[in-house]
Design a protein around this nucleic acid. Structure first.
Length: 261
DNA sequence: ATTGTGGCCTGCCCGC
DNA sequence: TGCGGGCAGGCCACAA
Protein backbone atom coordinates (compact mmCIF):
# COMPACT_ATOMS: atom_id res chain seq x y z
CA UNK A 1 0.00 0.00 0.00
CA UNK A 2 1.22 3.48 -0.58
CA UNK A 3 3.20 4.68 2.36
CA UNK A 4 5.83 7.35 2.19
CA UNK A 5 8.17 5.49 -0.20
CA UNK A 6 5.44 4.95 -2.77
CA UNK A 7 4.24 8.54 -2.57
CA UNK A 8 7.83 9.69 -2.99
CA UNK A 9 8.01 7.59 -6.16
CA UNK A 10 4.77 9.21 -7.33
CA UNK A 11 6.24 12.62 -6.59
CA UNK A 12 9.31 11.88 -8.67
CA UNK A 13 7.15 10.61 -11.51
CA UNK A 14 5.03 13.76 -11.42
CA UNK A 15 8.12 15.94 -11.27
CA UNK A 16 9.69 14.21 -14.25
CA UNK A 17 6.64 13.84 -16.40
CA UNK A 18 3.81 16.18 -15.45
CA UNK A 19 5.25 19.66 -14.95
CA UNK A 20 4.79 22.54 -17.38
CA UNK A 21 2.11 20.94 -19.53
CA UNK A 22 -1.03 23.03 -20.11
CA UNK A 23 -4.11 21.48 -18.50
CA UNK A 24 -7.10 21.26 -20.79
CA UNK A 25 -9.50 19.09 -18.86
CA UNK A 26 -10.25 17.27 -15.64
CA UNK A 27 -12.35 14.19 -14.94
CA UNK A 28 -13.58 14.33 -11.35
CA UNK A 29 -16.91 12.60 -11.57
CA UNK A 30 -16.67 10.60 -8.36
CA UNK A 31 -18.04 12.84 -5.60
CA UNK A 32 -16.81 10.47 -2.94
CA UNK A 33 -13.29 11.06 -4.18
CA UNK A 34 -13.51 14.85 -3.80
CA UNK A 35 -12.58 15.99 -0.31
CA UNK A 36 -12.69 19.25 1.58
CA UNK A 37 -16.11 20.32 0.35
CA UNK A 38 -15.23 20.13 -3.33
CA UNK A 39 -18.11 19.71 -5.74
CA UNK A 40 -18.09 18.21 -9.21
CA UNK A 41 -16.70 20.77 -11.61
CA UNK A 42 -14.73 22.70 -9.01
CA UNK A 43 -11.44 21.01 -9.79
CA UNK A 44 -11.81 21.48 -13.51
CA UNK A 45 -12.72 25.11 -13.11
CA UNK A 46 -9.66 25.66 -10.96
CA UNK A 47 -7.14 23.71 -13.03
CA UNK A 48 -8.02 24.16 -16.69
CA UNK A 49 -5.63 26.67 -18.19
CA UNK A 50 -3.04 26.08 -15.47
CA UNK A 51 0.18 24.09 -15.52
CA UNK A 52 1.79 22.19 -12.71
CA UNK A 53 4.94 23.96 -11.59
CA UNK A 54 6.25 21.73 -8.81
CA UNK A 55 5.63 18.32 -7.23
CA UNK A 56 6.05 18.26 -3.46
CA UNK A 57 5.35 15.70 -0.78
CA UNK A 58 4.60 15.95 2.92
CA UNK A 59 4.23 12.54 4.47
CA UNK A 60 1.77 10.65 2.28
CA UNK A 61 0.26 13.77 0.76
CA UNK A 62 1.33 14.62 -2.80
CA UNK A 63 1.12 18.32 -3.63
CA UNK A 64 1.09 19.67 -7.17
CA UNK A 65 1.56 23.43 -7.35
CA UNK A 66 0.04 25.36 -10.21
CA UNK A 67 1.14 28.53 -11.93
CA UNK A 68 -1.52 30.83 -10.51
CA UNK A 69 -4.19 28.49 -9.25
CA UNK A 70 -4.66 26.33 -6.18
CA UNK A 71 -2.45 23.52 -4.96
CA UNK A 72 -3.75 20.11 -6.00
CA UNK A 73 -3.52 17.67 -3.11
CA UNK A 74 -3.62 13.93 -3.80
CA UNK A 75 -4.00 11.22 -1.16
CA UNK A 76 -3.65 7.62 -2.21
CA UNK A 77 -5.19 5.73 0.66
CA UNK A 78 -4.13 2.16 0.54
CA UNK A 79 -4.57 1.17 -3.06
CA UNK A 80 -4.08 4.37 -5.02
CA UNK A 81 -1.58 4.70 -7.83
CA UNK A 82 -0.41 7.67 -9.79
CA UNK A 83 -0.18 7.16 -13.54
CA UNK A 84 1.26 9.68 -15.99
CA UNK A 85 0.88 8.99 -19.71
CA UNK A 86 0.18 5.36 -18.93
CA UNK A 87 3.32 5.00 -16.83
CA UNK A 88 2.68 3.91 -13.24
CA UNK A 89 4.58 5.33 -10.30
CA UNK A 90 5.30 1.92 -8.80
CA UNK A 91 5.16 -1.59 -10.14
CA UNK A 92 3.82 -3.60 -7.25
CA UNK A 93 1.37 -2.61 -4.60
CA UNK A 94 0.50 -4.87 -1.68
CA UNK A 95 -3.21 -5.54 -1.21
CA UNK A 96 -4.07 -3.77 -4.43
CA UNK A 97 -5.41 -5.22 -7.61
CA UNK A 98 -3.19 -5.41 -10.67
CA UNK A 99 -6.06 -5.01 -13.04
CA UNK A 100 -5.45 -3.15 -16.28
CA UNK A 101 -4.82 0.54 -16.01
CA UNK A 102 -8.13 1.54 -17.53
CA UNK A 103 -10.10 0.25 -14.56
CA UNK A 104 -10.68 2.11 -11.34
CA UNK A 105 -9.67 5.53 -12.56
CA UNK A 106 -11.09 7.94 -10.00
CA UNK A 107 -9.55 11.18 -11.14
CA UNK A 108 -7.77 12.39 -14.26
CA UNK A 109 -6.08 15.53 -15.52
CA UNK A 110 -5.72 15.92 -19.28
CA UNK A 111 -2.94 17.88 -20.91
CA UNK A 112 -3.00 19.84 -24.15
CA UNK A 113 -0.56 17.41 -25.76
CA UNK A 114 -3.00 14.53 -25.32
CA UNK A 115 -1.29 12.98 -22.30
CA UNK A 116 -2.78 12.63 -18.86
CA UNK A 117 -2.14 12.28 -15.17
CA UNK A 118 -4.54 10.01 -13.38
CA UNK A 119 -5.25 8.26 -10.12
CA UNK A 120 -6.24 4.64 -10.18
CA UNK A 121 -7.64 3.46 -6.87
CA UNK A 122 -9.68 0.25 -6.73
CA UNK A 123 -10.85 0.76 -3.19
CA UNK A 124 -11.45 4.50 -3.36
CA UNK A 125 -9.71 5.15 -0.07
CA UNK A 126 -7.72 8.01 -1.54
CA UNK A 127 -8.98 11.44 -2.48
CA UNK A 128 -8.46 14.77 -4.18
CA UNK A 129 -8.40 18.16 -2.51
CA UNK A 130 -7.60 21.75 -3.43
CA UNK A 131 -5.29 23.74 -1.16
CA UNK A 132 -5.09 21.06 1.53
CA UNK A 133 -4.09 22.33 4.95
CA UNK A 134 -0.42 21.46 4.83
CA UNK A 135 0.20 22.90 8.29
CA UNK A 136 -1.93 20.14 9.81
CA UNK A 137 0.81 17.64 9.05
CA UNK A 138 3.78 17.09 11.32
CA UNK A 139 7.40 17.03 10.17
CA UNK A 140 8.09 14.57 7.38
CA UNK A 141 9.45 11.26 8.64
CA UNK A 142 12.24 11.24 6.09
CA UNK A 143 13.85 14.40 7.42
CA UNK A 144 12.48 14.87 10.93
CA UNK A 145 15.07 16.07 13.44
CA UNK A 146 15.74 14.53 16.82
CA UNK A 147 14.29 17.48 18.71
CA UNK A 148 11.14 17.45 16.58
CA UNK A 149 10.68 13.74 17.19
CA UNK A 150 11.15 14.32 20.92
CA UNK A 151 8.45 17.01 20.79
CA UNK A 152 6.13 14.70 18.91
CA UNK A 153 6.37 12.05 21.63
CA UNK A 154 6.79 14.12 24.77
CA UNK A 155 4.21 13.71 27.48
CA UNK A 156 2.03 11.29 25.56
CA UNK A 157 0.49 8.22 27.13
CA UNK A 158 -0.60 6.88 23.76
CA UNK A 159 1.12 3.77 22.42
CA UNK A 160 4.40 4.65 20.74
CA UNK A 161 3.28 3.13 17.46
CA UNK A 162 0.00 5.05 17.43
CA UNK A 163 1.86 8.26 18.14
CA UNK A 164 4.38 7.99 15.33
CA UNK A 165 1.54 7.09 12.97
CA UNK A 166 -0.40 10.21 13.95
CA UNK A 167 0.07 12.30 10.81
CA UNK A 168 -0.32 15.52 12.76
CA UNK A 169 2.70 14.55 14.89
CA UNK A 170 4.91 12.83 12.33
CA UNK A 171 3.93 12.78 8.67
CA UNK A 172 4.39 9.72 6.53
CA UNK A 173 4.61 6.75 8.89
CA UNK A 174 2.23 3.97 7.89
CA UNK A 175 1.63 0.61 9.45
CA UNK A 176 4.46 -1.24 7.75
CA UNK A 177 7.07 1.46 8.32
CA UNK A 178 6.02 1.73 11.95
CA UNK A 179 6.47 -2.00 12.55
CA UNK A 180 9.78 -2.05 10.69
CA UNK A 181 11.24 0.99 12.46
CA UNK A 182 10.20 -0.14 15.94
CA UNK A 183 11.56 -3.60 15.23
CA UNK A 184 14.89 -2.15 14.10
CA UNK A 185 14.99 0.16 17.12
CA UNK A 186 14.15 -2.66 19.53
CA UNK A 187 11.18 -0.79 20.97
CA UNK A 188 7.84 -2.25 22.00
CA UNK A 189 4.98 -0.76 19.95
CA UNK A 190 2.81 -0.55 23.08
CA UNK A 191 5.28 1.51 25.05
CA UNK A 192 3.80 4.84 26.17
CA UNK A 193 5.16 7.35 23.66
CA UNK A 194 6.42 9.64 26.39
CA UNK A 195 8.30 6.91 28.23
CA UNK A 196 11.41 6.78 26.03
CA UNK A 197 14.69 7.77 27.61
CA UNK A 198 17.32 9.75 25.71
CA UNK A 199 19.05 6.67 24.32
CA UNK A 200 15.82 5.09 23.15
CA UNK A 201 14.75 8.32 21.52
CA UNK A 202 18.03 8.53 19.62
CA UNK A 203 17.66 4.92 18.54
CA UNK A 204 14.13 5.49 17.31
CA UNK A 205 15.17 8.62 15.46
CA UNK A 206 18.08 6.89 13.74
CA UNK A 207 16.05 3.83 12.78
CA UNK A 208 12.95 5.71 11.70
CA UNK A 209 14.90 7.80 9.24
CA UNK A 210 17.03 4.84 8.28
CA UNK A 211 13.97 2.74 7.57
CA UNK A 212 12.40 5.42 5.41
CA UNK A 213 15.62 5.92 3.43
CA UNK A 214 16.12 2.18 3.02
CA UNK A 215 12.62 1.56 1.79
CA UNK A 216 12.76 4.45 -0.67
CA UNK A 217 16.05 3.07 -1.95
CA UNK A 218 14.74 -0.46 -2.21
CA UNK A 219 11.63 0.68 -3.96
CA UNK A 220 8.70 0.35 -1.58
CA UNK A 221 7.24 -0.03 1.86
CA UNK A 222 6.96 -3.79 1.38
CA UNK A 223 10.75 -4.25 1.11
CA UNK A 224 11.54 -4.05 4.82
CA UNK A 225 13.52 -6.74 6.62
CA UNK A 226 10.64 -7.53 8.96
CA UNK A 227 7.90 -7.49 6.36
CA UNK A 228 8.59 -10.92 4.90
CA UNK A 229 8.17 -12.44 8.37
CA UNK A 230 5.07 -10.45 9.17
CA UNK A 231 2.71 -13.40 8.82
CA UNK A 232 1.42 -16.31 10.89
CA UNK A 233 4.36 -18.53 11.79
CA UNK A 234 6.86 -15.75 11.11
CA UNK A 235 9.99 -15.49 13.23
CA UNK A 236 12.20 -12.53 14.04
CA UNK A 237 14.91 -12.17 11.35
CA UNK A 238 17.32 -11.01 14.05
CA UNK A 239 17.01 -13.72 16.67
CA UNK A 240 14.58 -16.35 15.40
CA UNK A 241 11.98 -15.75 18.08
CA UNK A 242 8.38 -16.32 16.93
CA UNK A 243 6.83 -12.93 16.27
CA UNK A 244 3.85 -11.72 18.26
CA UNK A 245 0.79 -10.32 16.58
CA UNK A 246 -1.68 -7.96 18.21
CA UNK A 247 -3.54 -4.76 17.61
CA UNK A 248 -1.98 -1.46 18.58
CA UNK A 249 -3.69 1.79 17.77
CA UNK A 250 -6.32 -0.19 15.90
CA UNK A 251 -3.72 -1.66 13.53
CA UNK A 252 -2.39 -5.14 13.10
CA UNK A 253 1.03 -5.09 14.70
CA UNK A 254 3.88 -7.59 14.58
CA UNK A 255 6.87 -7.46 16.89
CA UNK A 256 9.60 -9.57 18.43
CA UNK A 257 8.82 -10.33 22.08
CA UNK A 258 12.49 -10.96 22.74
CA UNK A 259 14.41 -7.93 21.58
CA UNK A 260 11.70 -5.25 21.48
CA UNK A 261 11.27 -3.85 24.98
C1' DA B 1 -7.18 18.33 24.70
C1' DT B 2 -6.12 13.28 24.36
C1' DT B 3 -7.00 8.68 23.21
C1' DG B 4 -9.74 5.02 21.29
C1' DT B 5 -13.17 2.99 18.00
C1' DG B 6 -15.74 2.20 13.86
C1' DG B 7 -16.68 2.80 9.09
C1' DC B 8 -15.60 3.86 4.51
C1' DC B 9 -14.22 1.05 0.17
C1' DT B 10 -13.14 -3.37 -2.71
C1' DG B 11 -10.46 -7.57 -3.84
C1' DC B 12 -8.68 -11.65 -2.19
C1' DC B 13 -8.37 -15.84 0.30
C1' DC B 14 -9.81 -19.10 3.54
C1' DG B 15 -12.99 -22.59 5.20
C1' DC B 16 -17.28 -24.87 4.82
C1' DT C 1 -18.63 -25.31 -6.86
C1' DG C 2 -20.42 -21.25 -4.58
C1' DC C 3 -20.67 -18.34 -0.76
C1' DG C 4 -19.85 -15.90 3.60
C1' DG C 5 -16.82 -13.73 6.39
C1' DG C 6 -12.52 -11.91 7.77
C1' DC C 7 -8.83 -9.18 6.48
C1' DA C 8 -5.86 -5.57 4.43
C1' DG C 9 -5.08 -0.12 6.21
C1' DG C 10 -5.09 5.37 5.42
C1' DC C 11 -7.98 8.60 7.00
C1' DC C 12 -11.86 10.81 9.04
C1' DA C 13 -15.94 11.33 12.06
C1' DC C 14 -17.24 10.59 16.33
C1' DA C 15 -17.25 9.03 21.32
C1' DA C 16 -15.52 8.96 25.94
Amino acid sequence: MPELPEVEAYRQLAEEAALGRPITGVDADDDWYLKGGLAAGDVGAALVGQRFTAARRIGKLLLLDTQSGPVLGLRFGMTGRLVVDGRAGVDALLHASNDPLARFVRFAVHFADGGHLLMRDPRRLGGVELDPREARLGPDARTIGLAALRDALAGSAAPLKARIMDQQRVAGVGNLIADEALWRAGLLPERPAGSLDANELRRLHRHLRGTVDDLIGRGGSHTGDLIASRMPGGVCPKDGTPLTRSRVGGRTTWWCPRHQV
